[in-house]
Amino acid sequence: MKKFVLAAAAVLFVMPAVQAADDPVATRKAIMQSVAASAGLSGGMMKGEIAYSPAAGKAAIASLNAAALSFGAFFPAGSEAAPGTTASPKIWEDSAGFAAALAKFSAATGAAAQASGKDGPADVDALKAAVGPILASCKSCHEVYRVQK
């Protein structure tokens, strides 16, 4: 239960918009951390480690959807060389491919937001159906557009 409260709290702090304008790298990393927190909350509920609640499912999905819609705006030219980033230069070399990966991500989160409705996915199976495709889209983007440095 404590884990649930922590995870839910993480989800609520979705995007610290503070540094958005002057620090795109910190912003996009913060967005991805919120994505990971929501994925962790969903995963924890799917594994049965965190008790399921439709409101928590809805919060996770809403935060993933907001992240998918905003993430692409924080990759200005030149920010591939910033210290601490793990963004791959391929984002800028193949911007059409990166846009397609973003579109795939937001299509999955948009469909989940639609399916989760006003009250959130009714049970764990509904959550799995909604969030499964989102979780499957992480690694196809990271495979090409992210590199550990």
Binding site: C138, K139, R146
Partner: peptide, 9 residues
Amino acid sequence: FDSVGGEMV
């Protein structure tokens, strides 16, 4: 809950 990337995928 970071996701695997690069050649490790």
